[in-house]
């Protein structure tokens, strides 16, 4: 059996206590909510925290609330709860879809939306046991100093592998982040950095506490996920599209690609092309071609990277077609919200 290394476990009751504990232990400490990302990585010795700060006992992290200004989803809300929440499915179908496509039913019962937003970047040179990584000579993300995907590179190219992050970005979500020195509210885009190692733009003591969503008025959204199997697998391409419609004319739109870079990658030019337009097949084709531009996968996940790039265009087209009511165009219906 592959087992966890030893550590000290702290179980704070409040966010403030948790942030204080994190501040006190600095880089030696890591947060755990569902444990579905942290513990496998600890078993493979990708993470070696001396202190684990458990968030499970913090009540304020749980639950979904609707207020006049929009929605608040506690970061500790499980992915199962998010995916089956009737009002989320109604107002933010892409979010319900994305949460419901994360890994497997068991892991969705354990894993939280905060955990998925902060999920470690992945690379098939990195998500391996200590012995495997030792045999290949380690990489810069852990224990080594080169990138095995792009050996000449000075940076790490591990892949953002969250299903919910591109959707939340497309929906204009903000995050409430609580640290030892207070809290701040930031657009979700500001959480991410284009680096496989330092992929989160937050201090170690800062805890993602809430996901805040604006009211869904007029927004339609869709999420498509590419992976080998209908369960377990991380996305190797995610396409999130959200559009605010006025009748059949697009007023505002965002297209965000997942799992093709170290952070969710917005396709801004493509989205801009939609604004003020009716969604027609010609427009879908044009926008899909543009959206595939920022998709720059490397050979460090399942499937070949040229294939992932190629499917980006198809998925963007299908997601747009779904939003524009042009028929599903083909993909498995459960993947279209």
């Amino acid at each position: 059996m592959i087992r966890l290394p030893s550590f000290t476990y702290l179980a704070p009751r409040t966010l403030a206590e948790a942030a204080t504990a994190m501040a006190e232990h600095g880089r030696d400490a890591m947060l755990v909510a569902g444990g579905t990302d942290l513990y496998p990585n600890m078993k493979r010795r990708q993470f070696e925290p001396k202190v684990v700060v458990g968030l499970r006992g913090i009540r304020e992290l749980r639950g979904v609330r609707v207020e006049s200004g929009g929605w608040t989803i506690g970061a500790g809300t499980t992915l199962s709860e998010v995916s089956t929440h009737p009002a989320i499915a109604r107002d933010f179908p892409a979010l319900a879809t994305a949460a419901g496509l994360v890994s497997s039913p068991q892991l969705r019962n354990m894993g939280t939306i905060g955990g998925n937003v902060c999920v470690d970047t992945r690379c098939n040179y990195y998500n391996q046991s200590y012995e495997w990584r030792k045999a290949i000579g380690f990489c810069m993300k852990k224990d080594g100093d080169i990138c095995l995907v792009a050996p000449g590179s000075s940076r790490c190219w591990a892949v953002s592998s969250s299903d919910t992050a591109p959707v939340l970005w497309a929906l204009g979500a903000r995050l409430r982040v609580v640290g030892a020195g207070g809290e701040r509210i930031v657009p979700i885009a500001a959480l991410y950095r284009d680096d496989g190692i330092e992929y989160l733009a937050k201090r170690p003591d800062e805890i993602v506490a809430d996901v805040l969503l604006p009211p869904a008025d007029g927004w339609r959204s869709a999420y498509l996920k590419l992976r080998r199997r209908g369960s377990f697998d991380f996305p190797v391409l995610g396409v999130a599209v959200a559009a605010r419609m006025n009748g059949d004319v697009v007023r505002e739109a965002r297209i965000v690609l997942g799992a093709v870079a170290s952070l969710p990658r917005p396709a801004e030019r493509a989205a801009a092309e939609l604004v003020g337009q009716r969604i027609t097949r010609d427009l879908v084709t044009r926008v899909a071609d543009l959206a595939a531009g920022p998709s720059k996968p490397l050979d460090n996940t399942d499937f070949t990277h040229p294939y992932r790039k190629r499917v980006t265009r198809v998925f963007v087209a299908r997601a747009l077609a779904a939003i524009g009511g042009l028929g599903d165009g083909g993909p498995a219906s459960e993947e279209v919200a």
């Binding site: 098939n124 998500n127 495997w132 045999a135 290949i136 199997r229 209908g230 369960s231 991380f234 399942d302």
Partner: peptide, 27 residues
């Protein structure tokens, strides 16, 4: 359709249940 035991740089590329693709109920 999906299972393969392949190697890269002298190592098994994916010695795990996650990356060695065994079909689920859905496939």
């Amino acid at each position: 359709l999906m299972e393969e035991q392949v190697f890269r740089k002298g190592l098994h590329k994916q010695p795990s249940m996650l990356e060695y693709k065994s079909p689920t109920t859905l496939e």
